[in-house]
Amino acid sequence: MTATEARDAFLQWMETERRASALTLTAYRGDLDRFLAFLTMHLGAEPDMGTLAGLSLADLRAWLAHEHAMALSGRRPTTQDRAARTRARRVSALRSFYRYLARYHGVDNPAPGLLATPRTRRPLPRPLPQAQALEVPEGVSDIARTPMAQVRDGALFMLLYGCGLRISEALTLDVRDLDQARTLGDGAKGDGVLRIRGKGGKERMVPVLPQVMQALARWRGVHPLPQPDAPLFVGVRGGRLQAGIAQRAMRTWRHMAGLPDHATPHALRHSFATHLMEGGADLRVIQDLLGHASLSTTQRYTLADEARLMDVWTRAHPHATDTPPDTAR
C-alpha cells in the first residue's frame, strides 16, 4: 500500500467511523497532501508504508519547518497566532493518521507523539448586543430579493439566534425535522423541540420558543417542496441552501446597518449563549443547548462576560481615570 492509499483509507475511516466533520476532513486532507508531497521531495521518492514507519522526529520537524518557511516567504501569509493554530492542527492530523496506521496497518512509529504542540490562544466569543441580535432576522429578511427568500431568511436567522445553532446544523435540517418538532412540543404553548445533529453526528434536543416556531411555520407555509425528506431551507433552484449564501446575506445587511465585521451568522450562536448566561442560565444547561462536548468550551462565555465587565468598569468607574497621588515625601 502506498502512503497515498493509506491517506485515503484514513480519511474514509475518519468520515465513516469517527464521523468527522466536512471541515475537519478537508483540513486533514490538505495537511496530509502537503506532508506526502514534502516527503516525496525530501526523500526523492514517493513514500510507502515502510517510509512512514521509518520516519524520524527530525523528518517530521523538517516538514513543519518547511511549512513555516513557506508562510514566511509570503506565499501563505499568516499571523503569528494563526500560524500556531495551523501548526497545532497539522500535528493533530499527523498523530491521528499514525494512530490509525498503528491500529489497522501495524505501523508503529512513536515520532508523531513526540512533536511539541504550540500553545494557541482561543479567541473569546464576540456576541452582538441584544438589541442588534434581535434586529438581524428582520433586517436580513428585508433585503432579500424575492418574497419567498424574505420568509426563508427571516425564519433561518430567527432559528440561529433563538436556538443557538451552527449555520451548518440549521441547513442540514429537513422538513420532517420541523414537523417532528411540533409533535414533541407543547401544542398549547406553541413551542417545539428540535432534534439537532451536531459535530461528530452527536444528537441533542433543543427547545424552540413560540416566536421561533411561528417564523418556521410561516416558512413552512410557502415552502416550495413540502415533502418530508426535502431540505428545510432551500435555495432558488430547490436544492439545500448553501451556507455561503446565508453568510453573504448577513454580510450585506451588516454593511448597510453599520455593524462590525464579527456580526456573522455564528455570532448569533455566541449571542444566544451570552444572553442566556446574562439572564442567569446555568452553564451546564448552556453546554447542553450548544452541544459542547467539554464544559471548558462553554466557559469561554464566562471569560468573555468578565472581559466585558472589566471594560465597563475601566470606562465608568471614577477611580479608573484618576491619576494616583504623589506619595513621595
Score class of each variant (00 low, 15 high):
residue 227 Q to I: 07
residue 143 I to D: 12
residue 191 D to W: 09
residue 123 P to F: 05
residue 188 A to V: 12
residue 166 R to V: 11
residue 139 G to S: 11
residue 79 T to P: 05
residue 140 V to K: 03
residue 202 K to G: 06
residue 155 A to G: 03
residue 52 L to A: 13
residue 327 T to A: 06
residue 318 P to A: 01
residue 207 P to C: 08
residue 211 Q to H: 14
residue 86 T to A: 08
residue 291 G to D: 00
residue 154 G to P: 08
residue 209 L to W: 12
residue 273 A to N: 00
residue 66 H to S: 14
residue 188 A to H: 14
residue 198 G to V: 02
residue 316 A to H: 11
residue 48 D to K: 02
residue 188 A to S: 14
residue 41 M to D: 15
residue 328 A to H: 12
residue 148 M to C: 07
residue 220 R to Q: 15
residue 245 I to M: 08
residue 120 T to M: 06
residue 291 G to T: 00
residue 315 R to A: 12
residue 314 T to D: 13
residue 137 P to I: 07
residue 266 H to E: 00
residue 107 V to S: 03
residue 291 G to M: 00
residue 35 F to Q: 14
residue 87 R to A: 13
residue 49 M to K: 11
residue 162 G to M: 04
residue 4 T to Q: 11
residue 109 N to K: 01
residue 214 Q to F: 08
residue 10 F to P: 05
residue 282 D to P: 07
residue 256 M to G: 07
residue 191 D to I: 06
residue 42 H to Q: 05
residue 286 I to T: 02
residue 119 R to T: 15
residue 216 L to D: 04
residue 318 P to M: 00
residue 44 G to Y: 10
residue 208 V to W: 03
residue 8 D to K: 07
residue 294 S to Y: 08
residue 298 T to K: 10
residue 273 A to F: 00
residue 262 H to K: 02
residue 51 T to M: 07
residue 148 M to P: 07
residue 202 K to C: 04
residue 205 M to Q: 12
residue 267 A to C: 05
residue 19 R to T: 09
residue 264 T to I: 02
residue 244 G to D: 13
residue 37 A to W: 00
residue 257 A to K: 01
residue 100 Y to E: 02
residue 260 P to W: 01
residue 169 E to Q: 13
residue 30 G to Y: 06
residue 247 Q to T: 13
residue 327 T to E: 09
residue 240 R to S: 11
residue 183 T to Y: 06
residue 127 P to D: 02
residue 72 L to A: 14
residue 197 R to H: 09
residue 259 L to P: 06
residue 234 V to N: 10
residue 106 G to R: 04
residue 300 R to S: 10
residue 140 V to L: 00
residue 119 R to M: 03
residue 73 S to D: 13
residue 1 M to H: 13
residue 42 H to R: 15
residue 78 T to S: 09
residue 55 L to H: 03
residue 281 A to H: 10
residue 204 R to A: 04
residue 271 S to N: 04
residue 246 A to F: 02
residue 300 R to H: 11
residue 245 I to T: 15
residue 158 M to P: 02
residue 268 L to A: 02
residue 312 V to G: 08
residue 303 L to I: 09
residue 73 S to P: 06
residue 73 S to I: 02
residue 74 G to L: 01
residue 323 T to Y: 05
residue 190 G to I: 07
residue 55 L to Q: 01
residue 22 A to I: 13
residue 126 R to P: 03
residue 18 R to Y: 01
residue 251 R to D: 14
residue 227 Q to F: 12
residue 111 A to V: 13
residue 298 T to E: 10
residue 297 T to Y: 10
residue 298 T to A: 07
residue 88 A to K: 01
residue 315 R to H: 15
residue 192 G to Q: 09
residue 285 V to H: 14
residue 204 R to K: 07
residue 92 S to Y: 09
